[in-house]
Every structure is written in C-alpha cells, then in structure tokens.
Write a protein that binds this DNA or RNA. Structure first.
Length: 474
RNA sequence: GGUCCCAUCGUCUAGAGGCCGAGGACACCACCCUCUCAAGGUGGAGACACGGGUUCGAAUCCCGUUGGGACUACCA
C-alpha cells in the first residue's frame, strides 16, 4: 500500500498524560511527520464512567504544550470524525451488526458468573484459561431458549482459529499458535462497545496506515487485524514500543508519583527538553547525537531503530538536558518562561530587569522552578538573610559592611566593572581574598550565600537598593 | 499455569560475525577554571546475565537456564 502515511495517537482521557504515553504520542507523531504524513488524535473514552471534561482537556493541553500538533482530531475536526469514541457509538453498533450478520461474530449468553466458574475449572485442570467458545456453536433452539429466558447477551468475535503472524515494525515477526487467541467480547451486554471493537473500526474508518503504541498491546494486534479483516479492510502496520518503566523497573503508573507531563511542566522543565529526552528513551539516531530539537529528530527518526528493551525514566538526565536547553534559549524567551514561576512565588516582576538578568542565571538553572531563588533579591526588598548568610555576616570584620556601603556609595559610575574593583579594594584593605571579601556583601544584599555573579547582580539591582541593604545590614 | 516480549557500564544507549582488549551521554570521583553557586574543560572508575552450541572467529547467530515484563477481562 503506497500513499500517505497516517498515524494516530489514541489515548484514554485520563487527565495529564504520563510521560510513557507522551513518548508513544511523540514516536507516532515523529513517524507521521518523518514520512510527511498525517497525525490523527482520537480519544478512547468508551469507558464513559470515569471520563471528565477536565481529563479530556488535559490530554489536549499536554500534546499542544509538547508541540505535537494533529491534523485530525478533537477541536480541529477532519473528514473521519467525530474523534471521540463516545460519540461514535452508532458506528460501532453498525459494525457489530454486520459482523453478526456475516457470521464473524455471535451472541454469547454466558454470564460473568458462569465464565468465572469455567475459568477456574480450566485452571484447576491445568488448561489455559480464557473463553472456551461455548456459545460459538450454539444450536438455534438453544439460542431461542436463552432469548426466551431473557438472558442478557454479549456479542463475541469469532477469532479465526489458525496461527497468526504479525510483522511488527519494531519487534519483527511475532507469532501465535493455532487456538491460542480466544474469542473476545465486542459489545457488552448493555450494548456498549469494547476497546477491541472500537480501535479496529476506527483504525479502518480513519484510514490509519501505521499504529505506534505500547507493547502491552502487542497481543491485541492479531485481534485488531482479525476484526479489520472480517470487516473487509486491510489492517495497518503495527509498531509496538517497549515500556517506559520507573525506578523500580515497573511500567510507569500512578504509583510512581508525579510522572505526568503536567507535573514536569510545573517543576520547571521545558517542552523542548522533555521531548528531546523522551525521543532518546528507546530510540537513538545511531550516532552520538543527544541534543536534537524536534525538527532534527523528525528528520532522523526511524521506527526500525527503536530499541526492544524497556527504558527506565531517568529524571537526572532529563534535568541535565533541561539545563542545556535553558542555556541556548534567547533572553526574551527564557525570561517569559520564568515569569510564571516568579509570580507563583509571590514576586512582582520587572520585565526589563528580568530580561537583563537572564545571562546571569541561565546556566545556573536546571529548571525554571529555580528562578525564584536565584532572582528573589531583584524583585523584593524584603530581604531576610538566611542562616548561612547570617553566619557570614557575623564573621565579617567589624565595620566591613559599612565600609562596603561607603566604597560603593562613592562610585562615580554604577557598572559591574567599577563595582568589582571597589569590592576588590575593600577586600584587599581588610586583607581578604575575593572569596572571603565578597561573601559578606553578597549575604547582605541578597540574603543568601549563593547568588548570580555579584558585581553584575549589584549593577542590575541599582545603587540605591544596594546601598540601602548594606546600610540595613551594617 | 499458558502464550508472547525483553536481557551491553548504576541509568539511557552505540554495536546488525572480525573495525570491540566494547564507543557516547547522564550520574559518580579527581583535577583545572573560579567572587558564591552553577556552567565549562581534562582525566578516572564502571557493562556484553549464565550455560551450551554454530563458526577459523560471537556482545552480535541458534538452543537452554535464570531474571524482568506484558497478555491471558462484559479494562484500555
């Protein structure tokens, strides 16, 4: 099959995406874009019970923030809509009816209790569990009897009982022996569609050519293919990604705490870094490149180079990468991104000062969330020296801070170079080196023993505010 | 239990029979730079899970073992 490549990402609307899902979205997007194809977003909300509008929005917001745009899907529309499965009920119903009529599916009258009992018995006998296919061969009179009884029924797919081979784009050939894939439910007894029906119908209807998803779904590939083929369609190609796992080597889940895209955003990670990091989780361009922005990733991405082993999410490396991206961002951009975190900390921001402060702090920030600590002294005059700063001040020679105020106050020009030499003169006069001589000033002015480079910081702060703080400390 | 997937430094990976006495990155350690903190530079330590084959030759191919994981739902 030639023609346009069409990839889809089909998340359940579970609120903010966890980074494993985000990586799936990214790889699917990269494959679509790499091939100049379309990226489709479809929301799998057939389990209506716990779907909220907020959870739905969370997914869209995350994708947008990451820079993964979609050509078809919620809010952008497209020729194969609607793109929320909850709005496609009639389509699934129709498909199920057709499969039923054509003998690819059948009504199953087994109750959950009966299934459970038979499953348990099979296990005890040492037989593999799973649906035993009982209703597949029901005689007409038995069927009629069940109907007359008013028994509820599900619609079950009659899985063709031959061996299956899936040519997976990342795993290679994966096979299942004859009879290993059991008949599965398509429509619940309340008439609602199950995932296995919905994906098959939608992937077919939406003209999906490549399905990129987690390898927890590998075993459902032959089932997806079978349904699509029963519907008279041609199944897409599948590429199953290894799992992203947490510190404990288990697939990422709520248990791992804050692993959502939103959580990382709130912790001051930038989308560029998260995307770059995620791209390298389970994939590499084959050379030693690590820092590669989205366009570069798109150009070199190749599903066949995706690794087969689960990848542990390493916040340390993400953090390093985040810092690298902060270092290369231009001042205006970086400043704009800091604003949220500064105001969040209750600091009133002067945009001009903020912008000018960027060169001083960019390589000192691993995340944007560190901006407030680094810049607090510029945006508030409420400086309360912390413990270490107080210790430094206490150890300073008598009158040292006063002397600093005098020396700086006498400066004809308030610029970093002049400030630096004044501070040097002061230190020298007291027989101190720079390290010892500058720290008391830093402590008095910033309230901390850690700050951006001192002369530049004081220049930015301005003479008046600097002197006032020195006076106060003296 | 059955079926399937997976197995290179602590972590992410390069490696598709000889170029590997295994390369890069994060983290770690040391040193350099240095006004604090970072950033940066240089160097160091650190891995082919195990056992059998195949081959002149295996991290790379095959089999087994062990260890992880997924699936085995009227979840997705």
């Amino acid at each position: 099959m030639t023609g346009e490549v069409r990839c889809r990402f089909a998340p359940a609307p579970s609120g903010s995406l966890h980074v494993g899902n985000a990586r799936t979205a990214l790889f699917s997007w990269l494959w679509a874009r790499h091939n100049g194809g379309a990226f489709i977003l479809r929301v799998e909300d057939t389990d209506a019970s716990r779907v909220t509008e907020e959870a739905f929005r969370g997914v869209l917001d995350d994708l947008r923030w990451l820079g993964l745009d979609w050509d078809e899907g919620p809010e952008v529309g497209g020729p194969h809509g609607p793109y929320r499965q909850s709005e496609r009920r009639s389509i699934y119903q129709e498909a199920a009816d057709r499969l039923l009529a054509e003998g690819s599916a059948y009504r199953c009258y087994c109750t959950p209790e009966e299934l459970e009992v038979r499953n348990r018995e099979a296990k005890e006998r040492g037989d593999p569990p799973g649906y035993d296919g009982r209703c597949r061969t029901l005689r007409d009179d038995e069927r009629v009897a069940f109907e007359r009884e008013g028994r509820p029924s599900t619609v079950r797919f009659a899985m063709p009982q031959h061996a299956w081979v899936v040519h997976d784009l990342v795993k290679g050939e994966v096979g299942w022996g004859e009879g290993q894939l059991r008949d599965f439910v398509l429509l619940r007894s309340d008439g609602s569609p199950v995932f296995l029906l919905a994906v098959a119908v939608d992937d077919l209807a939406m003209g999906v050519t490549h399905v990129v998803r987690g390898d927890d779904l590998l075993a459902s590939a032959p089932r997806n293919i079978a349904v699509i083929e029963a519907l008279g369609g041609v199944a897409p190609a599948y590429g199953h990604l290894p799992q992203v796992v947490g510190r404990d080597r288990r697939p990422l889940s709520k248990r791992h705490g804050s692993t959502s895209v939103e959580a990382f955003r709130e912790q001051g990670f930038v989308a560029e870094a998260l995307v770059n990091y995620l791209a390298l989780l389970g994939w590499s361009p084959g050379d030693d490149r690590e820092l590669a922005p989205l366009p570069e990733l798109t150009a070199s991405f190749d599903l066949s180079r995706v690794s087969n082993n689960p990848a542990m999410f390493d916040v340390e490396k993400l953090t390093w990468m985040n810092n690298r991206y902060l270092q290369t961002m231009d001042d205006d951009d970086l400043a704009a991104r800091c604003v949220h975190f500064l105001t969040e900390s209750g600091l009133g921001v002067d945009p001009v000062v903020l912008r000018r402060a960027m060169p001083l702090v960019r390589e000192r920030m691993k995340t944007l969330a560190e901006a407030p600590d680094l810049l607090r002294f510029l945006f508030t005059d409420d400086i309360e020296p912390n413990e270490r700063a107080r210790a430094v001040l206490a150890k300073a020679p008598d009158g040292y801070v006063r002397g600093a105020a005098d020396a700086l106050g006498a400066l004809p020009s308030w610029d970093a170079a002049s400030i630096a030499s004044a501070l040097d003169g002061l230190a020298e006069g007291a027989g101190l080196n720079r390290t010892k001589g500058w720290q008391p000033v830093r402590a008095a002015v910033t309230g901390s023993t850690v700050s951006p480079p001192l002369p530049e910081s004081l220049e930015l702060l301005g003479a008046d505010r600097t002197l006032a703080r020195l006076e106060a400390a003296a």
